[in-house]
Amino acid sequence: MSPSLVPRYVRRFSVTLFSCVALLAFGPCLGQSEVVVVRAQASKVVEELRLSGTLTTERRAGLSPRVDGLVAEVLVDAGDKVSAGDAVLKLDATLAMAVQRRVDAEAAQAQASRNEAKRRVDEARKLVPQQTLPKTELEARIAALELAEAALAAAQASAREQDELVQRHVLKAPFEGVITAKHAEAGEWVARGTAVLDLVSLDAVRLDVQAPQEIFSALRDDTPVQLIPDTLPDTVLDARITARVPVGGGSGARTFLVRVVASEPSAALFPGTSATARFSLAGSGASAVQLPRDVLLRHPDGGYSVFVVETNGKQSVASRRKVSVGRDSNGLVEIVAGVKADESVVTRGNEALRDGDTVRVVAPQG
């Protein structure tokens, strides 16, 4: 049969059936797209500032012995952790200990002499009233006692001095930390003032950064700040500003020192490595709409648009809006114009939408 002889209603039915099959292949016949929306919220604008620097420690010392001597034993090595007061190096104290024994003996001899002088004075004081001993003898014995007491004091001072010299042959850690370098071995002769070990404290690691002059004035001691070690970029530590130096570094860069310290000690912070300080600066105080980056659709000309879900009778319709964007921080984008607070903006399913499409919201967010 010629197509021209096919009844008109049959051809119309065929066209309608094909259209429905096409819709079934590419989507529901109702033409609704399922979307996820987020409610636009107005919040105070917060500007984020990131400054990088090198982690340092408040306490770093090159340990040196307090007397000259031959190294007898090095008790630590690089990488060892020590506590305050731990012995880290010993010098040969054989000669010093020999001298100590001699002065201790001299102190004991002086003590005995003083005791004898004291006994003779006590004896004289009993005999003088009985007139069996002249008074001049008592005075002589008192003078001898004073000389013996002075000699005892000198001997005891020498003993304490020598005891201190013996103790100085043992080098102790002045604070808790980690040995970062060893510069001497057993058998070496070292002199006072020569660093034999390097000790670094890990308790108070700090980050010094240089803030531009236009930012420095906005920083306060209570400005929220976080530390991010570059060795562990996923680690974010709460921190605080401990110093702001209002004097430029003199290099002509017009930057000023800001010192940041983690609120709690962390094993993620290593002196000598780099880190980033993230400051949260309050803006002008005005509120702005902030939305997730996923709502944005980029245009070939570099502009942006979003789909806003509007109610048209009993239907929800996607309306395309051109928007102007502002700051981008923490996964949120500031929408300067194009979206108002409390409007529902499509965050998923917006790639295939067209202006005016009917949509069904499956999971509203926010």
Rank of each mutant, 00 (worst) to 15 (best):
M1P: 01
R8K: 07
V10M: 09
F13W: 12
V21M: 15
A22E: 14
G27A: 07
P28T: 07
C29M: 15
C29W: 14
C29L: 15
G31T: 00
V38P: 00
A42Y: 03
K44G: 13
V45D: 10
V45K: 12
E48Q: 14
E48G: 03
E48W: 11
L51S: 01
S52T: 14
T54F: 09
L55D: 06
T56L: 06
E58F: 04
R60N: 12
R60P: 00
P65Q: 06
D68I: 02
S83H: 02
L91H: 03
T94R: 11
M97C: 02
R101E: 08
R101D: 06
R102S: 08
Q111D: 09
R120Q: 11
K126S: 08
L133I: 00
L133C: 02
E137H: 05
A140W: 00
E149F: 05
L152K: 06
L152N: 08
A155E: 04
Q162F: 03
E164M: 10
E164H: 06
H169R: 08
H169T: 04
L171Q: 01
K172H: 14
K172A: 08
A173T: 05
A173S: 10
E176G: 15
K182H: 00
V190A: 03
G193K: 04
G193E: 03
T194K: 08
V196W: 01
L199I: 07
S201A: 08
V205T: 07
R206Q: 13
Q210F: 15
E214R: 14
I215F: 10
S217M: 03
R220T: 14
R220K: 15
I228S: 00
T231N: 11
T231S: 09
L232P: 00
T242C: 08
V245E: 07
P246E: 09
G250K: 12
F256E: 05
L257N: 09
V258H: 10
V261R: 08
S266Y: 12
P271C: 15
T273R: 08
S274E: 10
S280H: 10
G283K: 06
P300N: 07
Y304F: 11
Y304E: 01
S305F: 02
V306A: 01
E310F: 01
A318N: 05
K322Y: 14
G326D: 07
D328V: 13
G331C: 03
V333I: 13
G338V: 07
V339W: 02
A341F: 07
V345T: 11
E351R: 10
L353G: 04
D355N: 13
T358V: 13
R360D: 11
A363S: 10
